[in-house]
Design a protein around this nucleic acid. Structure first.
Ligand SMILES: NC(=O)c1ccc[n+]([C@@H]2O[C@H](COP(=O)([O-])OP(=O)(O)OC[C@H]3O[C@@H](n4cnc5c(N)ncnc54)[C@H](O)[C@@H]3O)[C@@H](O)[C@H]2O)c1
Ligand SMILES: NC(=O)c1ccc[n+]([C@@H]2O[C@H](COP(=O)([O-])OP(=O)(O)OC[C@H]3O[C@@H](n4cnc5c(N)ncnc54)[C@H](O)[C@@H]3O)[C@@H](O)[C@H]2O)c1
Lengths: 233, 233
DNA sequence: AGGCTTTTGTGAACGTGTGCACAAAGCTGA
DNA sequence: TCAGCTTTGTGCACACGTTCACAAAAGCCT
């Protein structure tokens, strides 16, 4: 379940505040989900709440941590130490949850060798060896989009089966390899879409809900005239 | 539809390569989705393909751009110019799709005044004015988690109705405000979860699929002894 | 000790998204 | 002009996730 990390975060906060137990209602509110959904999720991991009382916070934290595999540490390698790679390398939020930045790598020999966040950036030549020696299990790709697939292939060849991709590309991977992507532009575009909807309904039907296609002849052919050249490159 | 940006990206790539038309099958492969799904998605926006030929790339790019509201530009403000805020400010991928970084803001007076990516970082005091004058419609929150809700409230009060949140918190917002979150730790935890599943099935049932709760007496009470203190803070 | 209150765990209905499969539509070439 | 081929658009069935609602369980108070 993809919501477990959310619950875990809310529970950790409660735990820090010394709260001993929590009801599904409270926890659901903190995580921003429906309480029935939360209870069903928790029941999946065979968890035990106490009727009339709620869930024991500490116990639940432990259970979810174990279910997510957070009781062991996961060495992470970051590939492509540019703007974003820098930020991630300097980010302290990883270590607190069992993730350890084991290596930073870059193809640029001017970047390799630099010290960032207390680590020396390694060159891509050493990738396979680093993965092997440090038992890296998760690769984070922060290279430019054109390089992402190549890097991905090398990571997979080196034995990595979990990849977090920040480059705006669809990565092709063999079966058994998990890829998750974080895509800024897509998030912004979705926001823009909703924003447009809002202003459209506010200001009346300037844009019809369903855009009528160019009538008559065809959707193809000579349309050079009526297409403003506003489309993004 | 949250997949439109994906299609748009694939289409833009095709457009740059001069490809005039594309079949649903090809486009679906490029976007990593099912072809029937893609056709259904496109049919929602009343789009016109040509049977026996496929879709006109340029026309589709225009249609999707318009549907997503990408024919206008969206001024974006980034709040919290630390590691991540820096990276985003320096990122060139926004402008290419109609998003314009209109302002960088920070609460730290040592940060405000700095030039980053050709812009001067403004102080939070000016937030309301900047939002008003520059017609900022999307706010990006890259402050530490504890500050996020406060910043969010101010953005909403200033009239912003679309927020992209990088801080690991659930933001409470009034109806009509859209929040999308990008959460690194959650992505990593999901990867770790699957990774653990994989190694568990490989190496036999070291961890049972369903974790049996502590038997007998209760799930509560004296459990100080059998809980290893490995849970993340 | 027994009833009352609180809260879990879950059965069942519902809505949504997904994918198959096929008929209709349009192009191409003879 | 017409047959044949390709590809779209969509009806339909299915699977999944979500939510409601309620009975059973546990604690608490008298
Ligand atoms: N910076 C952001 O805020 C941001 C936001 C969203 C998405 N992205 C995406 O993240 C990726 C990185 O962005 P960035 O701004 O950090 O770019 P960048 O150009 O600053 O950094 C890219 C780094 O990758 C290295 N690199 C290039 N090819 C490589 C290869 N084959 N192997 C290893 N390393 C290689 C380069 O040497 C460079 O250091 C891009 O795909 C970008 O689209 C960035
Ligand atoms: N750096 C990363 O790679 C990364 C990754 C995932 C998530 N995050 C999250 O993104 C957020 C920012 O991370 P970071 O590494 O850039 O942190 P950072 O500490 O480097 O930067 C935070 C910035 O926000 C400013 N700030 C603090 N309170 C503010 C307020 N009330 N109003 C306006 N500005 C304020 C600070 O002055 C600072 O410049 C954090 O919530 C972090 O958890 C960061």
């Amino acid at each position: 379940m993809a919501r477990l990390p959310l619950y875990l975060r809310a529970l950790s906060a409660l735990s820090e505040r010394g709260v001993p137990t929590v009801s599904s209602e409270e926890l659901a509110a903190a995580a921003g989900v429906n309480s029935a959904k939360l209870r069903k999720d928790l029941s999946y991991l065979g968890s035990y709440g106490t009727r009339g009382v709620g869930y024991d916070v500490e116990y639940l934290v432990y259970q979810i941590s174990r279910e997510l595999g957070l009781t062991q540490d996961w060495p992470v390698a970051i590939i492509g130490i540019g703007n974003l790679g820098h930020a991630l390398a300097n980010y302290g939020g990883f270590a607190s949850r069992g993730f350890r930045v084991a290596a930073l790598l870059d193809a640029d020999r001017a970047v390799a060798g630099q010290r960032i966040a207390g680590m020396v950036v390694r060159h891509m030549d050493d990738l396979e060896q680093i993965v092997r020696d440090d038992r890296v299990s998760i690769g984070v790709i922060t290279t430019p989009a054109p390089a992402a697939q190549g890097v991905c292939d090398r990571l997979v060849a080196a034995g990595i089966t979990s990849i977090l991709n920040f480059a705006p590309t669809v990565l092709a991977v063999p079966e058994g390899v998990d890829v998750r992507k974080v895509d800024l532009s897509i998030e912004l575009q979705i926001l823009a879409f909703h924003e447009q909807r809002k202003s459209a309904t506010d200001a009346g039907p300037t844009l019809p809900p369903t855009a009528p296609p160019p009538a008559g002849t065809a959707a193809r052919g000579d349309r050079g005239g009526d297409l403003p050249e506003v489309m993004p490159a």
